[in-house]
Design a protein around this nucleic acid. Structure first.
Length: 301
DNA sequence: CTCCAGGCGCCTT
DNA sequence: AAGGCGCATGGA
């Protein structure tokens, strides 16, 4: 047998990249830690990622690729995180967050998968979101090739596929009252009444308004998609954790009204506000002591 | 057993 | 404009 023409493995040299925290902090929901590494599906392809040493990220796929830019883009391996964090406002809270969460990155996800996942996220814990997303993929996603001995996996279902479902079918994925929201959003995407690719060319506020026009999408979920999928650098999702962080760290004396708090985050954090948000979010969660990823056995769920 | 979770939509003031 | 409430489901 001869070697494949194109490689099944690829490696990047990285600096200040913490793969584990990046994949497990609730920006993407399909990564699972197995004894062999982090397994997930990116752009319809199965991937296993490991970080054998701090300055290397190793990728393994089930089929060969002649170009790996799709994965380099997803992982944002070319971002110099020190340049990013140096543009944060110089305050002790952010400095502490950067110190505590060194190597945390933002991914660059598929817009539909990101949008649909965060529509499912409201009043759910991250573990539950992961379970619902996985169920959705198993029931509606196309099977993807995996390497021998690994459990079968499915792509994230397309908007077109979700749009064909009944609300009842979606509720069987345990998404509860979010089912009509997901279905409505999928139909808007499937019938082209919203153009997710077209949002890349819009200014932030217009893209935000487009997303908010979808059912089940408010300011917070829109900002998540703008940051995690489109890479708008100043999108700043304000969820309960961030709200608590801003309140405690920046308004310790008095209770900040929602309007004032929104104005603060829109002006204070500067050109890399999105990264600042991610550092504060993760910092709050690790100091509150919850989100430690656990090894998942490499067979039945 | 209760409580609450990376919110949103709708209904009151 | 701003605040309260219900919504499914299942961890903690």
């Amino acid at each position: 047998m001869s070697d494949p023409v194109y490689p099944l493995k690829w490696v990047w040299a990285v600096k200040n990249y913490d793969l584990a925290s990046t994949l497990s902090t609730g920006q993407a929901f399909r990564w699972r830690l197995t004894p062999g590494g982090w397994e997930g599906v990116v752009r319809g392809s199965w991937v296993r990622l490991t970080q054998p040493q701090p300055d290397l990220i190793l990728a393994e796929t089930a089929r060969p690729f002649d170009s790996w830019t799709w994965l380099a883009d997803y992982l944002q391996v070319d971002v110099d995180i020190d340049v990013v964090t140096r543009r944060f406002p110089a305050d002790k809270h952010l400095a502490q967050a950067v110190e505590t969460c060194r190597g945390l990155r933002l991914l660059r996800q598929d817009p539909w998968e990101c949008l649909a996942s965060f529509i499912l996220s409201s009043t759910k814990q991250i573990v539950q979101i992961q379970q619902c997303v996985e169920l959705l993929c198993q029931r509606l996603g196309e099977p993807v090739g995996v390497t021998a001995g690994n459990r079968p996996m499915h792509a994230f279902p397309t908007a077109q596929r979700v749009a064909l479902c009944t609300e009842h079918e979606l509720r069987e994925c345990k998404i509860g009252f979010r089912a009509p929201y997901l279905l409505g959003a999928a139909r808007r995407v499937a019938d082209s009444s919203i153009d997710l690719e077209g949002l890349r060319k819009l200014p932030l506020d217009l893209a935000c308004n487009e997303l908010i026009s979808l059912p089940g999408v408010g300011r917070k979920i829109a900002d998540c998609v703008l940051l995690f999928a489109y890479g708008f650098p100043t999108a700043f999702p304000v969820d309960v954790w961030i709200h608590k962080a801003i309140q405690q760290l920046y308004f310790p004396k008095r209770r900040a009204q929602a309007k004032r708090l929104q104005r603060f985050v829109d002006t204070y954090f500067g050109p890399e506000a999105g990264y600042a948000q991610q550092y504060l979010f993760h910092y709050m969660r690790v100091t509150a002591g919850r989100s430690l990823p656990t090894v998942h056995p490499n067979h039945e769920t």
